[in-house]
């Protein structure tokens, strides 16, 4: 008779099974592939960093560097110079980041809440009206015509106002509110609370994690925004960081007429500017990653 203790030696976890802990060749192949892919992701950043901290002559002579030969911080001094256009851009972007995000969050969340509640007059009409805009739009030129009619052309507010509600995130918020227990609303109603009180005192505090997720998406969007500035902003004081960066990098490299003009801007300075915009993101991203992932996953499953 087999002893009880022997059972653990039975092949419950056969070789190659999901629960087999042994490392096989296949594991090494996958590991190697992903490792190389990871290097491909990291290398452009590392390369940019090297260029930004090397003196221009060194970069011109030895473009492939694995380690920095000489350090030269002049590019960063230039970037952090209070007179530099990047600082100006940063100020505009910070306003967009805080004001814009709060504005978007407010309108997106109240709309999501109203649409998540049980029937009210005209709800399905409003819902359909919103859904249509996800699949059909007027296009760029009618939009530009509208903006100039509204007097938003070359107006700082053009970078904030048209972003009030992001339909996708609004629906995400709506689904989240709809998934919270409805009994809370009913009992609060009996106690005499109105819809705004119920929203502010009961449902809003319960949705803080979701609010954080959507707020972060808006914040990233505002940090990265340049499109409305490109279309409508002419005043150099109103240009956001990404647009200033775009002028520096893209216009110099892709408009052949401007190559000569751009040649005076060194690669080192361009890359220092790139790092100036990436570093805040790099610092926050690892800690905030879980919020972003959550937003994506919730949206996909409920969507």
């Amino acid at each position: 008779m087999r002893k009880f203790a022997d059972i653990k030696y039975l092949p419950l976890r056969p070789k190659g099974s999901t629960f087999d802990k042994r490392i096989t060749t296949m594991d090494w192949v996958i590991f190697a592939f992903l490792f190389i892919y990871g290097i491909i992701i990291i290398y452009p950043f590392y390369n940019a960093l090297l260029i930004s901290i090397s003196p221009n002559e060194v970069y011109m002579k030895t473009p492939f560097l694995l380690f920095p030969k000489q350090f030269d911080w002049s590019n960063y001094k230039q970037v952090f110079d209070p007179e530099s256009t990047l600082w100006g851009g940063l100020k505009v972007t910070l306003v967009l980041l805080f004001v814009g995000t709060a504005y978007q969050l407010f309108f997106t969340v109240i709309t999501g809440y109203a649409l998540s509640r049980n029937k009210w007059v005209g709800k399905s009409f409003v819902m359909n009206m919103i859904l249509v805009t996800m699949f059909f739009g007027g296009g760029l030129i009618p939009y530009m015509n509208l903006i100039s009619k509204l007097g938003l052309y070359d107006n700082f507010l053009v970078m904030i106002i048209p972003g009030a509600i992001d339909t996708y995130n609004m629906l995400l918020m709506r689904n989240y509110f709809a998934s919270l227990p409805h009994e809370l609303e009913e009992s609060a109603k009996i106690d005499g609370a109105n819809d705004i009180q119920i929203f502010v005192k009961i449902y809003l505090p319960m949705s803080l994690p979701m609010l954080a997720t959507i707020g972060l998406f808006f914040a990233v969007g505002n940090w990265n925004s340049w499109y409305n500035a490109m279309l409508f902003i002419k005043n150099p004081d109103y240009l956001p960081l990404q647009y200033v960066l775009r002028e520096l990098i893209v216009s110099g490299s892709s408009n052949m007429e401007r190559v000569t003009e751009a040649a005076t801007i060194t690669e080192g300075f361009k890359m220092a500017s790139v790092f100036f915009t990436i570093v805040p993101m790099m610092c926050f991203y690892p800690f905030l990653q879980k919020f972003f992932v959550k937003g994506l996953v919730v949206g996909a499953i409920k969507g």
């Binding site: 009210w120 007059v121 009206m129 007027g138 296009g139 509208l146």
Partner: peptide, 29 residues
């Protein structure tokens, strides 16, 4: 009964009419 919810949806209606439906009228261009 739903006046507060309607109050909350009014900004959205204005937003979608102005920024999504007015450009659709602009298709005439």
């Amino acid at each position: 009964k739903s006046k507060y919810l309607l109050l909350m949806i009014i900004p959205a209606i204005i937003f979608y009419v102005v920024f999504c439906y007015l450009p659709m009228y602009g298709i005439l261009i």
